[in-house]
Amino acid sequence: MRRSEDFAQTIRRGTRAGRDTLVVHCRRVEGSAERRVGLVVAKTVGNAVVRNRVRRRLRAVVVEQVEVVPPGTDLVLRALPPAREASYGLLRDDYVSAMSSAVRRASARTRA
């Protein structure tokens, strides 16, 4: 995901699930088979070196777990300040937990 409009729509219209290190926003896109993911790592997480390390870890987690995300889903991952000290394993666990919760809520919303 690259356009700010896509980020904004996913955050505003999607469902949200938060954990200690990150927040996952999820929006189901009808008629699409794509899985799109955007990352938000703000300055509150740390300096540029820390933000880039967090971004690389989150990107690796997403690539590792891409098959779990249903087709036609847009996700925005927003890193929280505790992510700066989080290990890869903790980030992965928080992502899997938050993502599954957000996807479940988004799927229930589209069916209703």
Results as ranks from 00 to 15, higher is better:
residue 1 M to G: 14
residue 3 R to E: 12
residue 4 S to F: 00
residue 4 S to A: 08
residue 5 E to D: 03
residue 5 E to W: 10
residue 5 E to C: 00
residue 5 E to V: 12
residue 6 D to T: 13
residue 6 D to R: 13
residue 7 F to N: 13
residue 8 A to I: 05
residue 8 A to G: 02
residue 8 A to L: 10
residue 9 Q to M: 01
residue 11 I to C: 11
residue 11 I to F: 12
residue 11 I to G: 04
residue 13 R to S: 06
residue 14 G to D: 10
residue 14 G to L: 03
residue 14 G to E: 10
residue 16 R to P: 03
residue 17 A to M: 02
residue 17 A to E: 05
residue 18 G to H: 02
residue 20 D to A: 08
residue 20 D to F: 02
residue 20 D to N: 11
residue 21 T to V: 09
residue 22 L to T: 07
residue 22 L to Q: 10
residue 23 V to R: 01
residue 23 V to N: 14
residue 25 H to Q: 10
residue 25 H to W: 05
residue 25 H to L: 05
residue 26 C to W: 00
residue 27 R to T: 02
residue 28 R to T: 09
residue 28 R to K: 06
residue 29 V to L: 07
residue 29 V to T: 13
residue 31 G to Y: 08
residue 31 G to I: 10
residue 32 S to D: 15
residue 32 S to P: 06
residue 36 R to M: 04
residue 36 R to K: 14
residue 36 R to V: 06
residue 37 V to T: 07
residue 38 G to R: 09
residue 38 G to I: 01
residue 39 L to F: 11
residue 42 A to C: 02
residue 43 K to T: 15
residue 44 T to N: 12
residue 45 V to K: 06
residue 48 A to H: 12
residue 48 A to D: 12
residue 50 V to A: 13
residue 50 V to W: 02
residue 51 R to I: 00
residue 52 N to T: 07
residue 52 N to A: 13
residue 53 R to F: 00
residue 53 R to P: 01
residue 54 V to L: 04
residue 54 V to H: 05
residue 56 R to W: 03
residue 56 R to C: 02
residue 57 R to T: 00
residue 57 R to P: 00
residue 59 R to L: 01
residue 60 A to S: 15
residue 61 V to G: 11
residue 61 V to E: 14
residue 62 V to P: 03
residue 62 V to E: 10
residue 63 V to M: 05
residue 63 V to C: 05
residue 64 E to M: 07
residue 64 E to Q: 13
residue 65 Q to I: 01
residue 65 Q to M: 07
residue 66 V to L: 14
residue 68 V to A: 14
residue 68 V to R: 14
residue 68 V to H: 13
residue 69 V to R: 04
residue 70 P to W: 09
residue 74 D to W: 06
residue 75 L to N: 07
residue 76 V to Q: 09
residue 77 L to M: 07
residue 79 A to V: 06
residue 79 A to G: 09
residue 80 L to M: 14
residue 81 P to K: 06
residue 81 P to L: 03
residue 82 P to S: 02
residue 82 P to W: 04
residue 82 P to A: 02
residue 83 A to G: 00
residue 84 R to G: 08
residue 84 R to S: 15
residue 85 E to F: 01
residue 86 A to N: 04
residue 86 A to L: 06
residue 86 A to V: 08
residue 87 S to M: 04
residue 87 S to G: 13
residue 90 L to Y: 00
residue 91 L to D: 10
residue 91 L to S: 11
residue 93 D to K: 14
residue 93 D to M: 13
residue 93 D to C: 04
residue 95 Y to S: 11
residue 95 Y to W: 15
residue 96 V to T: 09
residue 97 S to T: 15
residue 98 A to E: 08
residue 98 A to G: 10
residue 98 A to Q: 08
residue 99 M to E: 15
residue 99 M to L: 04
residue 102 A to T: 13
residue 102 A to K: 07
residue 103 V to I: 14
residue 103 V to A: 02
residue 103 V to N: 08
residue 105 R to P: 00
residue 106 A to N: 01
residue 106 A to Y: 00
residue 107 S to R: 03
residue 107 S to C: 01
residue 108 A to P: 01
residue 108 A to V: 04
residue 108 A to W: 08
residue 108 A to C: 02
residue 108 A to S: 12
residue 109 R to Q: 13
residue 109 R to W: 03
residue 111 R to D: 03
residue 111 R to Y: 02
residue 112 A to L: 08
